[in-house]
Design a protein around this nucleic acid. Structure first.
Lengths: 237, 237
DNA sequence: TCAATAGTGTCTGTGAGACACTATATC
DNA sequence: GATATAGTGTCTCACAGACACTATTGA
């Protein structure tokens, strides 16, 4: 902690994006390798300071667009509780408004407009390797929020592409929860929940095995009744 | 909206407190009658700007203490998503971090240190009568959050005093959800949920009728399985 | 043919909700 | 006694989970 007084520092507001996806059977997060101090060479969440004509949501949409090219208005983007500890940023007094964005395995936006390296990294590995600022805490909060939203909302489909099989959807739950689900029971659950998924005319043969019907997202936002993790799962989380 | 540019205004961060309780069979919120412009004479949420040596949580605890004399570390205090629209405060660029506090019908802190009037007001009436700034939106967000937390957590007991009957607890649910619950089924549900409530040796005779056993809060934080509102209830919300 | 994935049938246990019934108090 | 609130018994329905079974493909 700095010894000089911060009594007259001005407070700045930043947004940070936790962009989660399921790639290669793992929960992954989009990270940026910092080119400058502080934390040069370490990984950090994409984000930045609010511009004077932006509210936090607008800043989050802009950052998401800049980093991934995606339009946040069409995907799952929710604001998490702020992180505002006094010494969380060595450059001064910065309060961060974190956003959780869930995307369906997009192409890596490695050709960022600036020179920073942009990578997908498994969340476990990112947390184990360490992150700049308090971004590990932010990722953990976002991960827990995402896991919980899978229980009560239809957001799992946001991890999938435009069309997907029930098996794809089940793998999202399994990866996010770190648990195996019964394929048969899962299939019944999601098809019987009105408005969750809508069948198409097509099927997809994933190499071996019986081809699966392809579905699209339905209009339902919340899951009734919820898809509850069991008590044992929650102990792990 | 002001016609002058705000391009160079500095951003300030404020906290606002939505302090909810159940009083006289109604959901009520603690409000302050503003003594100064803007919005002089209108009701507003208690709150204020962050001090330089405070993070948002610390500011919320301080405001809660100042307005109610209560220690927020001992009660339910959660942060809600920020409100940051550019023109939400006519005095300038202010982003508000709202907190939901749930208290057990405390004495009205009418003798505030300053001259402002402090009152409990039914939430419905407050929303109907109008509020300063965007505080109506903040209250609605807090109310919805509180209603949802009743489903998945044991927070209902935070609305009750140190000891309470199952009937007291049921009335919290009924008032917050605007719905009637079956007393017998409710009693079984909460007594069978491990760690929710702990019986004491005492009973309370509330005038007429069979005296009810008094309970204390248990250690459980989450409700498994949840106490779900039915689909019809949610349509009202 | 076998292996693999998709999806259905069926049974069992848990729990929510309806509602009758018992328990214990005041009037 | 009547009335009001507390709490239990019991039935039914919905659904989660276990798991056997059928369906449909590639190798």
């Amino acid at each position: 902690m700095s010894t000089r007084s911060r009594a007259h520092e001005t407070l700045r507001l930043a947004v940070d994006l936790v962009i989660l996806t399921v790639r290669e059977e793992r929960m992954q997060v989009l990270l940026i390798e910092r080119a400058n101090d502080p934390f040069r060479g370490q990984f950090a969440l994409p984000g930045g300071f609010l511009r004077v004509d932006e509210d936090p949501s607008a800043a989050a949409l802009r950052e998401l667009k800049e980093e991934t090219g995606l339009d946040g208005r069409k995907l799952h983007l929710v604001q998490l509780p702020v992180f505002g500890e006094l010494d969380r940023d060595p450059r001064g007094r910065v309060v961060s408004v974190p956003f959780l964005a869930i995307v369906a395995d997009p192409p890596i936006p490695s050709a960022g407009s600036d020179a920073r390296a942009v990578v997908w990294k498994p969340v476990d590995a990112a947390l184990a390797d360490g992150l700049a600022f308090d971004h590990a805490k932010i990722i953990e909060a976002a991960r827990e929020r995402a896991r919980r939203e899978l229980e009560y909302t239809t957001v799992a489909a946001a991890f999938c592409g435009d069309v997907f099989t029930i098996g794809d959807l089940r793998r999202v739950y399994e990866v996010m929860w770190g648990d195996e689900l019964d394929p048969g029971n899962f299939s019944r659950k999601v098809t019987k929940t009105e408005g969750f998924i809508i069948p198409t005319e097509d099927k997809r043969a994933a190499g071996i095995g019986r081809p699966a019907v392809l579905y699209r997202r339905g209009p339902a936002q919340r899951l009734h009744p919820p898809m509850l993790r069991t008590a044992s799962d929650r102990l792990l989380a």
